[in-house]
Design a protein around this nucleic acid. Structure first.
Length: 292
DNA sequence: CAATTGACCTGTGTGC
DNA sequence: TGCACACAGGTCAATT
């Protein structure tokens, strides 16, 4: 599942293989893939044709390529925005390669080289063309918080916002308006490292505890990035179609029944928000009061 | 306004 | 064999 480290791997691939090239034309095989482009598929294609793709950028799980003729991105410039959702892939493929089963959108370039293909089995992801706002992020990202690897992420403001919440710790970690880029896998890994239960009331998280939490989320994401990201079912791959191998390093997520690497207690899977939470019942005891 | 829930989507695996 | 169903889960609209 693409979370921040996986999306960052893709961003680096786009920077290497796609940035600086000019779009010739766009083919949309599945309109749902551009449903967030309000003006429709034809407008989406028209806004990209003939445009040069600039630097690849990312916030949380979103990434975008600004459409620039020269110089640095400016407010008002348009950008090609992508979200991979559950199963989205951005692949850089030779034009002669047959279409993938779940190929949704193809960008063909004027240089005749490799195409950029958006492939998405479950179609939760999508592409759009959006103008950049004053802080140089696409308009649709106005409500998305900075991610923990962003140099401008404000640790103290996050701690304060966390304490104002009346919810559980994992729900807060997954709330992209508080902190972006964290999904189910890295939330569970972070909580395991921090020895925190997912239902810990956010209002009780002290400043040092919050600092530790941020330290763990940064560490686990940085380590995952160094290994090319996490993949379970090959649905997440880099632009060359290769899977990362961080799954070998997971301590809690997906480890139901296996011994906790710290204390040996079997890792437990519990239903949570219509999905699963993996935790060590001994290292991460359930708090007395909270029931989130 | 904040928190919560359901809908969206399809391939895979399991049980009957 | 075939069918029903649970599951994977990020985001957003609707509801409380």
């Amino acid at each position: 599942m693409p979370e921040l480290p996986e999306v960052e791997v893709v961003r680096r691939g786009l920077a290497q293989w796609v940035s600086g090239r000019t779009v010739d034309h766009v083919d949309i095989a599945h309109p749902r893939a551009v449903r967030r482009h309000i003006a429709g598929p034809a407008d989406f294609a028209a806004r990209l044709a003939g445009r040069r793709l600039g630097p690849a950028q990312r916030r949380g799980k979103y990434l975008w390529l600004t459409l620039v003729d020269d110089g640095d991105p400016r407010p008002g410039d348009e950008a090609l925005l992508a979200h991979l959702g559950m199963s989205g892939q951005l692949l850089v493929q030779p034009p002669q390669l047959p279409a993938e089963v779940h190929l949704r959108v193809t960008l063909t370039f004027t240089d005749g080289g490799r195409q950029l293909r958006f492939v998405d089995q479950r179609t939760f992801g999508g592409l759009a063309v959006e103008p950049l706002t004053l802080d140089l992020v696409p308009a649709a990202l106005a409500h998305i918080a900075r991610d923990p690897l962003d140099a401008l992420f404000d640790d103290e403001a996050f701690a304060a916002a966390l304490r104002r919440r009346r919810t559980g710790l994992k729900r807060a970690l997954l709330d992209q308006t508080l902190i972006s880029g964290v999904g189910n896998i890295y939330a569970d890994e972070t909580l395991w490292r921090a020895r925190q239960h997912y239902a810990r009331a956010t209002s009780t998280v002290t400043a040092p505890s919050c600092a530790a939490l941020l330290s763990h989320v940064r560490a686990v994401m940085t380590e995952a990035l160094a290994q090319g990201g996490t993949s379970f079912d090959s649905l997440y791959v880099n632009v060359n179609g290769e899977s990362g191998y961080f799954e070998r390093s997971l301590d809690a997520y997906g480890q139901e029944g296996r011994p906790c690497p710290r204390c040996g207690t079997p890792i437990r899977r519990e239903p949570f928000m219509n999905r699963s939470s993996f935790l060590c019942p001994r290292c991460q005891p359930r708090p007395r009061a909270a029931h989130w």
